[in-house]
Design a binder for these strands. Sequence first.
DNA 1: TCTCATGTAACTTCATGTGTTGCTAGAGTG
DNA 2: CACTCTAGCAACACATGAAGTTACATGAGA
Lengths: 127, 127
Amino acid sequence: MTSEALARALNTNPVVVRRLMGGLREHGYVHSEKGHGGGWTLSCQLDRVTLRDIYEALDAPRLFAIGNRSEETECLVEEAVNHAMSSVLADVKAQFLACFGQITLAALHADFHQRLAARHGPTTLCK
Amino acid sequence: MTSEALARALNTNPVVVRRLMGGLREHGYVHSEKGHGGGWTLSCQLDRVTLRDIYEALDAPRLFAIGNRSEETECLVEEAVNHAMSSVLADVKAQFLACFGQITLAALHADFHQRLAARHGPTTLCK
DNA sequence: TCTCATGTAACTTCATGTGTTGCTAGAGTG
DNA sequence: CACTCTAGCAACACATGAAGTTACATGAGA
């Protein structure tokens, strides 16, 4: 499948697709081929890759919208709050990764097919 | 304490302080007084207010930097992914709130005083 | 050699949170 | 009563980072 086609399906731009897929390629989850007839192909077993793997392949983007204003501070109040916050956020992030680590692409694939069967409409990609 | 003084301690602007404190006032955690000699005063018991209470008083700002691109979609793949994501994020958010719900302001206050004692420097607010 | 694809850098746009200004209203002081 | 000091609030400006876009280079088949 080409970046062009994926971009259309995702309502975005081919370059954005390439940026994202680049991370997946580096980790061997997909393979890309240049030139005529090129594009992207899957190169992993869906039941061996989890959302956590994807998240990390995508360079583990920032998870939280909140956080410490600065790590290093002279202010003891801020220091105390930072300490509490960091500890909570670390715990929560660990739980997040654990959850994501349990969801395989195969599970999503199966879920998709269940939804597709439930719809009995025409079978085109996205829509 | 005036918004002005707080802003200086927090390295920010008095109006920003007022915006934040406004949420706390609505929930009765602080009290404000206008005019000469006015400013902010605490009006809660530190051991009865948790970070969770503060978070919610501040209108529960967005917690995650990631999330579903859109809730409603025609795309069954997106639907499957959204479903998995939402479920994980909801679980994780619940854990976050639970953690925050266990940290009282009294605990932070105690932690601050411990840090202060450990430093044996002059005792000025922040620095 | 032409076309079709990815790879990549540089730039633009957009959304969101933060900071700032200007003004109003209330409360004490001289 | 005039003055000063404070919060309250709306409107605007700025900063940051994610997403989208453009332009061009590179590689592979026809």
